[in-house]
Computed example of a mutant assay.
Amino acid sequence: MSLFWRIFLLNAAVLVAAGALLLLGPITVSAPVVLTEALILAGGMTLMLGANALLLRLGLAPLQRVTRAMATIDLLSPRPRPEVAGEGEVAALIETFNSMLDRLEAERATSNARALGAQEDERRRVAQELHDEVGQTLTAVLLELKRVTGHAPEPLREELTQVQEITRGSLDEIRRIARRLRPGVLEELGLVSALTALTTETPTPRGLTIRRRMEKDLPPLGKEAELVVYRIAQEAFTNTVRHAGATLLELSLRRRPGGVELRIRDDGRGLGDAHEGAGLRGMRERALLIGATLTLSTGATGGTDVRLDVPVRNGNA
């Protein structure tokens, strides 16, 4: 039955009941109307309108629920779905909305996977060019500077030595950037070694203490899941180093029932009222690619607490 006919029949039932009470009941209306009759009619109209409002509210309650779901649902992770309730057009509307969310989630996952895959390919290409082109060029410059320094007069030799040190520092920085763009240690030695290298090789401000707690006997996650975990840890670590003003950073990677947990906590200034930027949004999108749950919150003693729960099914993430 369509929504129109349901509302029409509800109103008709209320009106028929009111008319039957007037016809069959002992109440009569005289002319002119006396006060008692007016009060009885007013009470009857009030009851009739109240019954009508109650029936309409019950009939349209599923529409109110789906309206709230449309207004509050997180499009990055549109779960749980609104419960299919009601009949006819109302139930069909909720089912259609849920189907739309299913398609949106599937299309978003596909497009995110394609975009992040292209991003990783571009990072590998840039890292390779930095290593092969810029790195080799600076290495050649260093060798030439060393040769020239050996034949230069004493007053000029000290200046050339300083240029060598600057060039060597630039070469080290380029290599560090290339390793961050393409974490070769992740492919060669695994996730634990890659996270250890991340925390030891990234320049940190003075006064920041880093603590690591990583278990060795973790379940296999697969290459894609390991890359997601590494990138999320890299983003969270970089945010803390650059913006948190923290004195303590704790990174842990542990086995949990049904999966693996990555956790990064600091005692910095916390999230505050800052809007979600591209970095945090990228972390959430990466987590969705592998079905992981990303939680960002304020720590018990302040700071930021980043937690990533990676599910492991049938031995792999």
Rank of each mutant, 00 (worst) to 15 (best):
R79E: 13
R81N: 06
R81E: 12
V84D: 03
A85I: 03
G86A: 03
G86K: 03
G88A: 06
G88C: 09
A91Q: 08
A91W: 05
A91H: 06
A91I: 06
A92L: 08
E95Q: 12
T96Y: 00
T96N: 04
T96F: 01
N98F: 04
S99Q: 08
S99I: 00
L101E: 02
L101T: 01
D102K: 04
D102F: 05
D102I: 03
R103Y: 01
R103I: 05
L104A: 07
L104T: 02
L104N: 04
L104C: 00
E105L: 01
E105M: 01
E105A: 12
A106H: 09
A106L: 10
A106R: 14
E107Q: 12
E107C: 02
R108P: 00
A109Y: 00
A109N: 02
T110S: 12
S111Q: 04
S111A: 11
N112C: 06
N112E: 11
N112S: 11
R114T: 08
A115C: 00
A115N: 08
L116G: 00
L116N: 02
A118V: 03
A118H: 09
Q119R: 15
E120R: 15
E122H: 15
E122T: 15
R123Y: 10
R124H: 11
R125T: 13
R125L: 14
V126E: 04
A127P: 06
Q128F: 07
Q128T: 14
Q128K: 11
D132F: 05
D132E: 15
E133M: 04
V134M: 13
G135S: 07
Q136G: 15
Q136C: 10
Q136F: 09
Q136S: 15
T137Y: 13
T137H: 14
T137L: 14
T137M: 10
L138S: 09
T139C: 01
A140Y: 00
L143D: 12
K146Y: 04
K146W: 04
V148M: 10
V148P: 07
T149L: 02
T149N: 06
G150L: 13
G150F: 05
H151A: 09
H151V: 09
A152M: 05
A152F: 02
A152T: 11
P153E: 14
E154S: 13
E154F: 07
E154W: 09
E154K: 08
E154H: 07
P155I: 02
L156K: 03
L156P: 00
E158I: 10
E158V: 13
E159R: 12
E159Q: 11
E159K: 06
E159I: 05
L160G: 06
L160S: 08
T161D: 14
Q162Y: 06
Q162D: 14
V163S: 12
V163Y: 08
Q164N: 09
E165N: 11
I166R: 11
I166G: 06
T167C: 13
T167Y: 04
T167R: 03
R168T: 02
G169N: 08
G169Y: 00
S170Y: 05
S170F: 07
S170E: 06
L171F: 01
L171K: 04
D172R: 15
D172V: 11
E173D: 04
I174V: 15
I174S: 07
R175C: 03
R175T: 07
R175M: 08
R176F: 00
R176T: 01
I177G: 01
I177P: 02
A178T: 03
R179S: 14
R180F: 11
